[in-house]
Computed example of a mutant assay.
Amino acid sequence: MKLLMRLIARFLNPADPAWHGIIDQLWQQLGAPHNPELLPPHFVKSTFLRMGGIVVTFHDDRRLVGVGLLFPRAIQPDGTRMYTLRLHELDQNLPDDLIQTTLHPIPVTIYRPRDGITFAPPAPRPTGIWIGPPQADDLPAIAALYRAVWNSQPYPADLFSTEFGAATALVATVDNRLVGFLLGFWRFGALPDTPDELAIESQVMAVDPAYRTYGLATRLKRAQAHAALACGVRCLHWTVDPLQLPNALLNFNRLHAIATEFVSGYYPVFNALNQVSASRFIITWLPASTHGRVGLVDGGERPALTDLPGVAILNDGPHPRPAPAHPPFIAIAIPSDWSALQHRDRALAHTWRTTTDAIFGEWVGWERYVIYTVAYDASGQPYLIGKPDGSWMWE
């Protein structure tokens, strides 16, 4: 805690048992759920922290006067971490110089949501499929698409602006109609041995369901990877529901990313896509590696279970199976229609989640097994396939 001229900065501790309630209370004070400038609270409670973000509150000697999110921004050659302070003031403007002094020695760029005013210049897009930066006129369509796909309040539109400086701000159009977008943030570290390496958290993507046969999700992710490599960033990172087959096919078979960690109940949220606990894989894509760069070109794999000698099948649907020690491959069955199953039979969905959570928690992780592809048995049942981590991931 630092005190100067009645301005105090308090850095909140995510290990506090009341962490979720603290964020909810702050968001209510800032006008949630009706304040469109606020990021989703489930993001702040989880991914924001894991990517190196910090929540800070500002007080005078009597009360709360502001809330800030310190987003990772850059890493200086000497290892100093730099941040973008996304600032929400309650009822008065806080002087920038006072904020800078209060946060010293943390180097910050102060940014308020109203500062996000610059986007790509207006210009017609070509016919066919186009991927590129958003224009200001795209923002209403981005918000509408987010609501249609995720059924919740959109991420604030200003995050796509030049002033905020997101790691990735892309839209996809077909014949000049906006049909997809991708937003990513900078993060500090995504690999166990490089905590001070700048990486990208590929946070939120949506594609119009009417255009999902166009390969737009793959195109957006590849555009993000090419841009990362061009600026010297070698690692992209995101989270995904391990039971969503379409996402698994995209992440593993087309992009050649890998699931390196598993977190049960990652997001404290229940919605149309998460009728049961929102567990997540942590996905790592290294597009400069031998394995990862295959995902930059077309030709996704569709292996068969019979292609994997010695594979250990760890479950029969929602029921676990005994497994041998140290198999060369593991296979975990997942539903082919996870979203529909949750709405059709929530009890069965809960059993699937509980069983697979236990399997992933035991088997998946650094220095254990990583998930790298989807395979099918003769009946068409999909399986997530894992093998021990090792040099094949990095070469």
Rank of each mutant, 00 (worst) to 15 (best):
P335F: 00
V269M: 13
H291R: 06
I283K: 03
Y369E: 09
V263L: 15
P318L: 06
G295Q: 06
A340H: 12
T351N: 09
G310T: 07
G295D: 06
G361W: 01
A323F: 05
S277F: 04
P328H: 01
A331F: 04
V276I: 08
A323W: 06
A325T: 13
G299R: 03
I359S: 09
P335D: 04
W285F: 05
V294F: 15
V374S: 01
V276M: 02
R368M: 08
G317D: 06
P309A: 10
S277W: 05
H291L: 08
P268S: 14
I371N: 13
T373S: 15
A349N: 03
P318N: 01
Y266G: 10
I313G: 14
I313Y: 00
A331I: 03
I332A: 06
G292P: 08
A272V: 04
D298Y: 05
G295Y: 00
S264E: 14
I330S: 00
G300K: 07
Q342T: 09
G292W: 00
S279A: 01
P327M: 03
P287L: 10
N274S: 09
I330E: 04
V370D: 07
V311M: 01
E367T: 07
S336C: 07
E362P: 13
D298P: 11
W366L: 08
V269P: 06
A340R: 14
L341R: 04
R344E: 13
L314A: 07
D357I: 02
Y372T: 15
N271T: 08
N315Q: 12
P309Q: 05
H326L: 15
H343E: 03
R280H: 06
N271A: 11
W352G: 15
T373E: 09
F270H: 15
G310H: 02
L341W: 01
L286R: 13
S289M: 07
L286F: 02
W363T: 14
G292S: 10
D316Y: 05
G265W: 03
N315H: 10
T284W: 03
W352K: 15
G361M: 07
Q342L: 06
A288Y: 01
S277M: 10
L273A: 15
R346P: 15
P309V: 03
T306N: 11
S336E: 00
I371L: 15
G292V: 02
V370G: 13
A333G: 02
I330G: 11
V263F: 09
H291K: 09
A349P: 12
L305N: 15
T260W: 03
V364C: 13
P322V: 04
S277H: 02
V374F: 02
N315G: 12
Y266H: 13
G317F: 05
G300P: 14
T306K: 09
A312H: 01
Q275V: 00
Y369G: 11
D357Q: 08
A278N: 08
R368V: 14
A325Q: 09
F281A: 04
V269R: 05
A312W: 07
G299A: 13
E301W: 04
H343S: 15
P318T: 11
F281V: 04
L273K: 12
F270D: 15
